[in-house]
Amino acid sequence: MSRRWRVALGLAPALALLATVFGTALFGSLAQSLGHAPAYGVEAFPTLRYYRAVFTEAGVAAAAARTLTTALPATILGLVLGAALGLALPARRDLAASLVQVPLLVPYVVAVALATVWLAGGGVLARALAALGLIEVPHDLPRLLDGAAGVGVLVTFVWKQVPFTALLVAAVRAGADPRLAEVAHVFGATPLQRLRYVTLPQVMPAVLAAAVITLAYNLGALEVPLLLGGGVRDTLAVSAWRVYADPDLTQRPQALAIAWSLTAGVVIAVAGLLVAARRWLPGVAGR
């Protein structure tokens, strides 16, 4: 078998499946968002009406803003804490390093259940504060889950994603050359200088990889903002979900237009992140 055939045959199943499932999903939904949806009684292809609505309706603009204010703080906080945890994980894994991974291994809906049992109005946190005499009724605690502050969403994202970044950072650090830090030490670098000029540049590729994946996830996530946002903090994904669930099926192309705009936004954000990294973090590029 020639090499060319080996390559083609090896890649064919994966690419075929990707094209059938992922490809039809994307292009089918693109066609619908442009008005081709006979199943829902909409035959207006091609029209930009639904995209125009995305960019003109106040509700959607607010959802776009909330998508950013939900995703960016969670991503940045998760990266900083995750990198710090990753640097604290030993090369030889101990029990703590194993336990740290647990949030990574449970689904987001379980994280939502945990956030609910701890942070809800009458949850464990409120009870603990009451036991300490700090509050008297559940109402005394600010609404953490469904209030406008979105604390529950932030905490859930961070709790779930810190171990992810930490593991990537720890893995890259374990593979990095330890002699560099030793050399820096010999030449009189302080611990802070070693961190700034040796360790951080070594683990930056891992932080970047984690940044790309967590940012993309947080911008497009549905479960967490839907279940913990309390209906007052709809992100783009949540609005698309709500419009899709509308009994009026002719609204569905609108949901797809929102989803496609969101996808485009995520792709632009990720590309921007990679370009920025290439520009300001030389040496990280190409990974």
Binding site: A216, G220, A237, A259, L262, V266
Partner: peptide, 15 residues
């Protein structure tokens, strides 16, 4: 990894 699961799911619901 980059395309939101929701966008894929909404498209797949029809296809």
């Amino acid at each position: 990894l980059v395309v939101p699961e929701l966008a894929v799911a909404l498209g797949l619901a029809v296809s």
